[in-house]
Design a protein around this nucleic acid. Sequence first.
DNA 1: TCGACGATGACCT
DNA 2: GGTCATCGTCGAA
Length: 198
Amino acid sequence: MAGKLKREYYLGDNVVSIARSLLGKTLMTNIKGVITGGKIIETEAYSGLVDKASHAWPNKKTARTEVMFEPGGIAYVYLCYGIHRLFNIVTNVKGKPDAVLVRAIEPTVGIEHIIKRRNAKKLTEKLSSGPAKVSSCLGIDLDHNTQPLTGRKIWIENGIENHHSIVETTRIGVDYAGEDALLPWRFYIKDNSYISRK
DNA sequence: TCGACGATGACCT
DNA sequence: GGTCATCGTCGAA
């Protein structure tokens, strides 16, 4: 049932399998008392040690990537194209900069607030089918960067164990990574309509 | 300091 | 299909 994922879950050393196992779980936020959440539909894994697509490659610590070197179980949120906030889950132990990008959710909790945040009239697939849209739906902002996922502002709950087929494919928007762009490190729930792209 | 650029999305044709 | 908004980050100077 709906238990909050514990710190140990995020400390695992295989970011690819964590990205896969996050599908179907529920990402939740509490923004000044407004609780919203959605089922995780699509994720991508990024591994700072071996993966050119990662901001932390090759094991590169800067002011921005520092958060990924912390022990898993905290949020990495960064500004993309000067406009969009992209939410990642830091994984692995201290000093191993891995993270999982959440690319799409299916809204399940506080849907009326999600619709309002997106300036929409009703719930459609388009509202949360992309990484920047996920942050917008759930009210995730840059001040969530470094926030623990074991706290009260943002967290992840075990989904009800429903069976779903998983599609594994290449990541989006990482052409700059050369052959690492070909790694099958993007995962999504098959036949779910909230997928960001086919 | 300064300049190039990005793990995107909204809107247009 | 194409354009472009908009600003923090990072490496060069």
